[in-house]
């Protein structure tokens, strides 16, 4: 009984709806569009308010100068100051050093580890994978503080290195300008290699292992397999991870702030930290800080385009 009744009412409503629908299809379209927009409106408003509007505001601020809230219009003076500011140039140099040394090392290391882990005959795969991924669980501040103590003058790293007689006296990991940069690079590599590895591993799993078997039959060495099969097939994901790492490195803050505080001198200071110092540590100059902010945005744009270009050229 009940199904029959439903069926009946069901058919009448559909025909009824059909007629109404044809009559008011325009109205209906508008209504459905309104519903669609109402689902996304909150997100659009929030992102505009907290990301796009601040960027516009930052641009206006970058045309002003002064201390605190007493800002006056200075045109492009801040941008001219940027190019002559030794501290800014140092922070750019430091950030670029981290970028061009750390990102390639990390990506090659992660690729290498994931190729080793991808061997189906390998024992303890799960253990190795979990162990190497583990650093990703820590917060940036927590691991930075741990690294600061591990690498202090009387820290465990120096103790261990001296025990195995690799060095005869402790290395000034945090107070020597050269070693301090190395410490930062080691720390970031420790934290993020496992993260990149996970991306490569899952991409490798999509490659049919028989390709390697037949390459082996044709006499290809492991190194040839790596460069002729693995790298070309993983290119999109390598591009993706290198862009992510570039954006991350260009806004490096937590690690440097907590391991070396930018020191010794300004030897490890990054651009982000300089923005922070300009706004909240020195006498606040929000206008100039906003100008430095734009420098990061522009650098991210340039490096991303560059990476797309490099990846694209290899394609041809």
């Amino acid at each position: 009984m009940i199904p029959a009744k439903t069926k009946q009412s069901y058919s009448t409503t559909t025909t009824g709806q059909k007629v109404r629908f044809m009559k008011n299809s325009r109205k209906h379209r508008i209504k459905s569009a309104t519903i669609g927009w109402s689902f996304v409106v909150l997100a659009v408003v929030m992102i505009c308010t907290f990301t796009f509007y601040p960027m516009v505001h930052a641009f206006m601020m970058s045309l002003q100068s002064g201390t605190g809230t007493n800002l006056t219009f200075v045109g492009l003076d801040n941008y001219a100051r940027l190019l002559k500011d030794p501290t800014f140039l140092t922070t750019v140099k430091n950030t670029v050093i981290y970028l061009i040394i750390q990102v390639p090392i990390m990506i090659i290391l992660a690729l290498f580890i994931s190729v080793l882990l991808n061997n189906p005959k390998l024992k303890f795969r799960g253990f190795f994978r979990t162990a190497i991924f583990l650093p990703c669980v820590t917060s940036l501040v927590a691991y930075s503080v741990i690294f600061k103590y591990l690498f202090s003058l009387d820290g465990i790293v120096n103790i261990l290195l001296m025990k195995i007689s690799l060095i005869s006296e402790p290395i000034q990991w945090l107070t020597d300008p050269f070693w301090a940069k190395i410490t930062i690079i080691v720390a970031i590599t420790w934290r993020w290699t496992g993260y990149n590895m996970i991306f490569y591993l899952s991409a490798l799993q999509n490659i049919d292992y028989s390709i390697y078997e037949s390459a082996k039959m044709d006499g290809a060495s492991p190194i040839q397999q790596f460069f002729k099969i693995t790298i070309p097939l993983l290119k999109p994901i390598i591009l993706f991870t290198s862009i992510i790492s570039t954006i991350g490195t260009l806004q490096l803050f937590d690690e440097v702030m907590n391991i070396t505080q930018g020191g010794p001198g300004n030897a490890t200071m990054t651009i982000s930290q300089y923005i922070y110092n300009l706004s909240f540590k020195y006498t606040p100059d929000f206008g100039y800080a906003a100008t430095v902010s734009y420098a990061i945005v522009i650098m991210i744009g340039i490096f991303s385009i560059l990476q797309f270009k490099v990846a694209g050229d290899k394609n041809e």
């Binding site: 459905s32 569009a33 519903i35 669609g36 927009w37 689902f39 996304v40 997100a43 659009v44 992102i47 907290f50 990301t51 796009f52 601040p54 960027m55 505001h57 930052a58 601020m61 954006i247 260009l250 806004q251 803050f253 651009i271 982000s272 923005i275 922070y276 706004s279 929000f286 800080a289 906003a290 902010s293 734009y294 990061i296 945005v297 991210i300 744009g301 991303s304």
Partner: peptide, 30 residues
Amino acid sequence: FKSKMKDYVFSFLLLSMMIPFAALMVPLFR
């Protein structure tokens, strides 16, 4: 509720992923 207009808005929102937080902190603080 896919539509051409919404796809434009979506791509625009994706642009915000390229903006680092370091660049936003000063204007957001203000």
